[in-house]
Design a protein around this nucleic acid. Structure first.
Length: 418
RNA sequence: GGAGAGGUGGCCGAGCUGGUUUAAGGCGUACGCCUGCUAAGCGUAUGUAGGGGAAACUCUACCGAGGGUUCGAAUCCCUCCUUCUCCGCCA
C-alpha cells in the first residue's frame, strides 16, 4: 500500500510507477473520492463535536435534576444527520481501500524501465560446464527417481514425486541451506503452510494473484505460494523497537502455485510445477538500511551457489518484470547444462514500506518519537527444483552418473550418484 | 464438535450497576534534578490515526471486528474473529 499523502501530493509519480509496471490504475477516481471523503469528514467532525457538547449538557442538567428535553431532542436530530453522513463516508472508505489495494508499489529510481528484455545482467560467476558428449536434460537423467506420472495419479498433472536419491537430495539441500542461513545469524522459522486472506493481503498476493493460488473454500484459507507469506506475517500488526532491527529470518516451506495459463510453456520436467519446495529469507529493516540489506541478501544467496560450484548470473529486473509489491528486485539464474538455458532460482526483493503498510508493521525509533513503518525484504534461498536440475545436469558424466558438489557429500553420504 | 472464561494504549492492568475516565495506576522509554562512579530516589513528559494552527495548543475517531439499543456505549444486546481452560474426537 502506498502512503495516502504521496497519492495526494504526487499522483503523477504513482500513475507513472503503475504504468512502468504495466498495471492499469485510475488515480483520478481515487483523488475525487479522497477529496469527497475529506469534505464529509469535516462535516462529520463538526456534528460530532456538537453532539458531544449536547451530551455533556444533558449529563450536567440531569445531575442537577433539571430538565434536558430540548438538548436531548437536538442531539437526536444531530445523530440522524450523522448517521446518514457516516453511511456515505463508509462507502467511500471502502472504495478507497479497494482502490489502494490495487495500486502497485513504485519502482525505485535505479530500476530500468521496460519489460523482461530490459533486464540487466549485472554480473555472473563460474564456468559454464563443457562436455565431450551431449548432455541430457534432468528428466532423462532422473528417470527412475523423478516420477511425474505417479504424482499425476496422486494429485494431478504438474505435481512431482521423488523417490530414492532424488528425495534425499531435496531433503539434504533444504537442510544444508537452512544451516547456511542460520550460521550467518538468521533465525529459522517453521510456519503454517496455509494462510488466511488477511495475511495474503498484507504481503500483497491478494487481490492480484488470487487466481494463481489454491484456495481451501470451506475454511477460506489459501495454500501459500511462497514462504514469504507466513514468515513476513509473523510480524503483522506488531510494534518493534528500533533496537530489534534488523530481524533476520529464514524458513523452509512448500510453495503452491496454480500457474494458471502457463501450460505448455517451459514446464517440462521440474521447470515449472504446482508444488515446489523452497527455503526463504525474510528481513525486516530500518528504512535507512534496507538498500544495504538488499545487497547483502543478494550476495548471501549467491554465496550458496559458489559453495555448490554452480554457475550463476544476477539480473536487475526491469520495471515491467517487477512483482506488484516490489520496489526493486534481483533475480539469480543458474545454468542448466542439459537444457542449455538459465533458470531463475531466486528473486530477491525490497518492498520498502509497501508490505509494512498493508500489514501494519512498525517500529519505535530510539529515543522515542513517532512510530514508523519498517521495510520488508525477502529472497529465495533457494528454490529447490531448479537447483536440483542444475546439480544433476551440470554434474552428469558420459555414463549417466552424477558427480555431486563436494559441499553435499557428507549429508548425501556419497560423492557420485549412479 | 460441546461447555466455560477472556480480548483495553509498546507491555501489564483498572474501569464493565451507561454520563466529571475525551481510559486510572504501574512497567518501559525520554529529558531534567540529586547522588564521588552501569544502582536507588525525585520531578516532568510519553498511545495511534486524521483535521485545524506559525506555535503553545485544539478538534475528531479508536477500548478484538462489525451491527444494534440510547439524547449519550470501553460499559447493555446480537453476529463474527481470536486466545485460554475443561470435555469429546483424531494423531
Amino acid at each position: 500500500m502506498l502512503d495516502r499523502k504521496l497519492l495526494r501530493k504526487d499522483p503523477q509519480a504513482v500513475a507513472d510507477g503503475a504504468a512502468a509496471k504495466k498495471e492499469k490504475i485510475d488515480i483520478n477516481l481515487w483523488i475525487n473520492a479522497d477529496s469527497k471523503r475529506r469534505e464529509l469528514m469535516l462535516q462529520i467532525e463538526e456534528l460530532r463535536k456538537h453532539r458531544n457538547s449536547l451530551s455533556k449538557a444533558v449529563s450536567m442538567k440531569k445531575r442537577n435534576g433539571e430538565n434536558a428535553d430540548s438538548e436531548m431532542a437536538l442531539s437526536r436530530d444531530t445523530g440522524l444527520q450523522l448517521s446518514s453522513l457516516e453511511k456515505e463516508i463508509s462507502a467511500i472508505d471502502e472504495s478507497l481501500a479497494e482502490m489502494e489495494h490495487t495500486f502497485p508499489n513504485i519502482p525505485d529510481a535505479d530500476v530500468p524501465l521496460g519489460g523482461e528484455e530490459n533486464n540487466v545482467v549485472l554480473r555472473s560467476w563460474g564456468q559454464i560446464p563443457e562436455f565431450n558428449f551431449t548432455p541430457k536434460p534432468h528428466w532423462e537423467l532422473m528417470e527412475e527417481v523423478f516420477q511425474p506420472e505417479a504424482a499425476g495419479r496422486i494429485a494431478g498433472s504438474n505435481f512431482i514425486l521423488f523417490r530414492g536419491w532424488a528425495a534425499r537430495l531435496q531433503r539434504t539441500l533444504i537442510s544444508w541451506m537452512l544451516n547456511y542461513h542460520t550460521e550467518a545469524g538468521m533465525e529459522e522459522i517453521w510456519a503454517p503452510f496455509v494462510a488466511k486472506a488477511e495475511s495474503m493481503t498484507a504481503t500483497a498476493q491478494l487481490p492480484k494473484m488470487e487466481d494463481d493460488m489454491y484456495k481451501i473454500g470451506r475454511d477460506g484459507l489459501f495454500l501459500i505460494p511462497t514462504g514469504e507469506v507466513p514468515i513476513t506475517n509473523l510480524y503483522r500488526d506488531q510494534m518493534l523497537e528500533e533496537a530489534d532491527l534488523p530481524v533476520r529470518l529464514c524458513g523452509y516451506t512448500p510453495c503452491f502455485r496454480r500457474e494458471a495459463g502457463s501450460y505448455g510453456k517451459d514446464n517440462r520436467g521440474l521447470n515449472r510445477v504446482h508444488q515446489f519446495e523452497k527455503v526463504e529469507m525474510v528481513r525486516l529493516e530500518h528504512p535507512d538500511r534496507s538498500e544495504d540489506a538488499h545487497q547483502e541478501l543478494l550476495s548471501h544467496a549467491a554465496g550458496m551457489l559458489e559453495l555448490l560450484g554452480i554457475p550463476y548470473r544476477i539480473l536487475l529486473l526491469a520495471s515491467g518484470d517487477l512483482s506488484f509489491a516490489a520496489a526493486k528486485c534481483y533475480d539469480i539464474e543458474i545454468w542448466s547444462a542439459g537444457q542449455e538455458k538459465w533458470l531463475e532460482v531466486s528473486s530477491i526483493s525490497n518492498f520498502r514500506d509497501f508490505q509494512a503498510r498493508r500489514g501494519n508493521m512498525k517500529f519505535r525509533p530510539n529515543g522515542g518519537g513517532k512510530t514508523q513503518f519498517l521495510h520488508t525484504l525477502n529472497g529465495s534461498g533457494l528454490a529447490l527444483p531448479r537447483l536440483i536440475i542444475s546439480i544433476v545436469e551440470n554434474g552428469q558424466q558420459a555414463d549417466g552418473s552424477i558427480i555431486l558438489p563436494p559441499a553435499l557429500v557428507e549429508l548425501m553420504g556419497t560423492e557420485v550418484i549412479r
